[in-house]
Every structure is written in structure tokens, then in C-alpha cells.
Amino acid sequence: MLRPEVLDYYLRGGERDRLRAGAGRLEFLRTWDVLTRTLPAAPADVLDVGGATGVYAGPLAEAGYRVTVVDPVPEHVSAAAGLPGVEAVVGDARELPAEDASVDAVLLLGPLYHLQERPDRVAAWREAARVVRPGGLVVAATISRFASLFDGFVKGFFRDPAFRPLVEQDLAHGRHGNPDDVPRWFTSAYFHRPEELPGEVADAGLVLRRLVSVESPLWMSPAALADFLDDPALLLDVLREVEEEPSLLGASSHLLTVAARESVGGL
């Protein structure tokens, strides 16, 4: 289900600590903030597709949601299943192990990263549309087309001459891939332009609700973030005000797309 280099990246713990500090911590706090304002009230059934070890599933279960993680990495599934109130199964976003119209919300907070071809991404969107109930929501995360460009300057990756060709490849067509498939800088992925997302949503038969900037450009200021992440109330409050500003979408490392399955009588 996963390309070998992608599976290897996750088996080596590539994402284990990423959301705990710096820009990763901002990503987690902002994603959680958007989810708490977007998902239907608990108790509700949430399918967390690509939910890995349950970094969001665990808090959702604590908040009273009935959560099932679907992930292609068996080790992730074992870890998620050990969380209180969380069920977990091995599966692929393009062929979900769930009945039609069986959940109130679907999270795609990882699968669209690693589906480099548009038909595969639309297939994942369509599966989410199939399993969510009429009126239910699908929330999907994507990486910005410009993430590696900005990240290269923030983290000094451009000092390595192999990094610039990778960035130029990302900018040209969005398909991120490391030389010789060795994941020196993330792993094989697809980086979206914001304007691509409405078309993918529409092709899946869903209705676009919102495009949300997760980190905004602040993810490129690690020193400034350090002053706010221990007590992030002000930071989160201010970022809510600009989270749908179109001119900032491409500068955020991640975007969240909120879509809905049309109810019988319309939305």
C-alpha cells in the first residue's frame, strides 16, 4: 500500500517527535484548534485515516468521540489500538474498511501527502465521501507546494548542493522525491497548490466548506514561536483571524481542507 521508502521512513520513526516542538508543535495546536471548532459535537463517529499512532485520535477519544484509526503501517495500528477508547485497523485510504455512510466525520490528515498521482488522491477523497454520512464532514491535510523552498532556508538545507534540484522538482510539479529514494529530507510525497484542492473535492462529489492555513508564515520563525508555544492562547486567537486569508495559504507549510457530503435536503 505504501511505497517502500515511505514505509521505511515511518518505521524508522520519522514522525515520532515532529509534533512536539517548534513548527511541528504549532502544526499540532492549530490542527487541534481547527478540529475542535469544525467537527460535530461528541459523541460522534470519527474515522481517522492515516492516523498513525493516534496523535489526534487519542485526544479525540478523551473528548468523547468514537474513533477508529485506519493506517497502512501495522506498527502504527498497534500503537493507536493501545490508546484508551481508540480502535485501529490496517487499511488504505483508497479502499477503506468501513461501510457506506457509517461515520460522522473522516480525517485525512496524512494520506494525501503520499499519493503523488491525482487519480489516487481523488480515490481517497471519494472513499471518504462514501463512508461519511450525509451532512458529515471530511477534513484533509495537505503540504504546501512551497514548503521545501521555505524549509530549505529556515533549516539550512540549501548548503547541500543536492537540495536545490529537489526544490526545483517540487516547484515544477509537486512530486517530492529524494535522490535515490533515500529520505534525507522527508520522503516521497505530493505538495499541493491551494487552487488544486477545490477540484479534487468536487471530483469526489463533496462540497468545499473551507480552506484553512494551519501554521501561516509563522512556521518560518522558530525563534519567535518559542516565546508563544508554552502559552499559545494569544497565538491561536490571532491566527484564527487570518486562517482563511487567500493570500497566506501558499505560505503555510500545511493546509486543511474542510468538505462536506451533501445531505438529502441540501447543505
Rank of each mutant, 00 (worst) to 15 (best):
L248M: 13
F186M: 05
F146V: 06
D230L: 13
G174I: 01
L239W: 06
L166F: 07
P179I: 03
A162C: 07
L218C: 00
E195Y: 02
F163I: 00
P198Y: 03
A233S: 12
L235E: 10
F163P: 00
R210Q: 15
L208Y: 06
E200D: 11
G136N: 07
P194T: 01
F191T: 01
A224V: 15
R193K: 09
A172R: 15
R130E: 13
A226F: 05
F228D: 14
G152L: 05
L197P: 01
L171K: 09
V238M: 14
L211N: 04
V154E: 04
V138L: 08
S144T: 13
A140Y: 03
A141V: 00
P194G: 01
L235D: 09
L229V: 14
S252V: 05
R261S: 08
V139H: 01
E195C: 02
E168R: 14
R184I: 11
P183A: 06
L218N: 02
G250I: 03
G135W: 10
E241S: 12
R164Q: 11
G250N: 01
P194E: 02
F150T: 10
E241K: 11
R209T: 12
V207N: 00
G152D: 06
L211T: 10
A162M: 11
S221H: 14
L236A: 07
S221C: 14
R240K: 12
E244N: 05
L171W: 09
G177F: 04
H173W: 13
G177M: 10
V132Q: 11
R193M: 04
A202F: 04
S253C: 06
L236E: 05
R159K: 11
L249I: 06
V214C: 04
R209P: 05
V132R: 11
K155N: 13
L225H: 14
L229P: 12
Q169R: 15
T187Q: 04
A260W: 02
F158S: 01
F153P: 00
G136S: 10
G152F: 03
H173L: 07
P161M: 04
I143F: 03
L225E: 13
T187E: 03
P246Y: 09
G199Q: 11
L256D: 05
A172I: 02
D227W: 12
P194F: 00
V214D: 01
S213F: 04
D227F: 11
P198S: 07
L211Y: 02
E245W: 09
S148Q: 08
P179R: 04
A223E: 15
F157W: 15
L236M: 08
W219V: 05
P179F: 02
A172D: 12
S213A: 15
Y190Q: 02
G199T: 13
R164L: 15
F150R: 07
Q169S: 13
P165I: 10
S247Y: 09
L208T: 02
F228I: 00
G152S: 08
R210K: 14
